[in-house]
């Protein structure tokens, strides 16, 4: 279970403090996966980072009785001059049990299907190869909650399908806190939604309902068709 109380986060922008999350309080039960929906810049990724303990709030508290992943698919933590295997070993030494390190490496090697590139420096990888390695690494550890930020948009079709299947399988034992502009993906994996607007959240028990309201709000902000054509 995750319990959040009075969570507030702001950033300094051009000398002024901009409040991104304003006094949020909510609970996530141990068997729930949450879709976080909102427009660009609404604070979805910030909320995920705070829940994951990667960033600290200005005020408020987050209590969690399970383990939370790093943002799934993040590539920044990889050292370019090290091979895929060495990078995976590094993370496995931190998160895995000593006797399971080889199993974790094997899992990532099999999932990523990099062949000989698994033993070549990370900086030589294509963007698709990087995505496969980083997603495989995230899934090599059975966390209670996975932070998933836009991951389903990465890689080629085969990788996306493979990732989707792995996520569905992982859903049986873990929960997701998910941000994705591919709203259809959210429906598959989540059973509740938070709609973020102006720093506040509205909770929805139906993901579909939240998506409908969000889509309607976004489309209502569009200028009429004639004005768009004139601007173009």
């Amino acid at each position: 279970m995750i319990r959040v109380s009075s969570l507030t986060k702001s950033y300094l922008y051009k000398g002024k403090r901009k409040c991104v999350l304003d006094d949020l309080s909510f609970e996530i039960a141990g068997d729930e996966s949450i879709a976080v929906i909102g427009a660009n810049g609404a604070g979805k990724s910030t909320l995920l980072q705070l829940l994951g303990g990667i960033d600290v709030p200005d005020r408020g508290s987050i209590q969690c009785d399970g383990t939370i992943s790093w943002p799934v698919g993040i590539e920044g933590g990889f050292q370019g001059s090290l091979t895929g295997r060495e990078n995976v070993t590094f993370v496995s030494m931190i998160y895995g049990e000593k006797h399971e390190i080889d199993d974790r490496i094997k899992f990532v090697e099999d999932f990523a299907e990099l062949g000989i590139y698994f033993d070549r420096p990370f900086k030589t990888y294509s963007s698709g190869m990087k995505s496969r390695l980083s997603f495989g690494l995230s899934m090599a550890f059975p966390f209670d909650y996975y932070l998933i930020d836009e991951i389903t948009a990465a890689g080629d079709q085969k990788f996306r399908e493979k990732s989707k299947r792995l996520l569905i399988d992982r859903k049986k034992t873990s929960n997701f806190l998910m941000v994705d502009h591919n709203l259809w993906g959210l429906q598959i994996h989540c059973n509740r939604a938070f709609l973020l607007e102006s720093g506040r959240i509205t909770e929805y028990t139906s993901v579909q309902e939240a998506i409908d309201i969000h889509t309607k709000t976004l489309l209502a902000e569009l200028p009429p068709k004639s004005e768009v054509s004139r601007a173009a």
């Binding site: 383990t67 199993d103 974790r104 899992f107 550890f141 059975p142 992982r170």
Partner: peptide, 8 residues
């Protein structure tokens, strides 16, 4: 594979 891995 999943079955052989213990929870964190």
């Amino acid at each position: 594979m999943e079955g052989t891995m213990s929870r964190l």
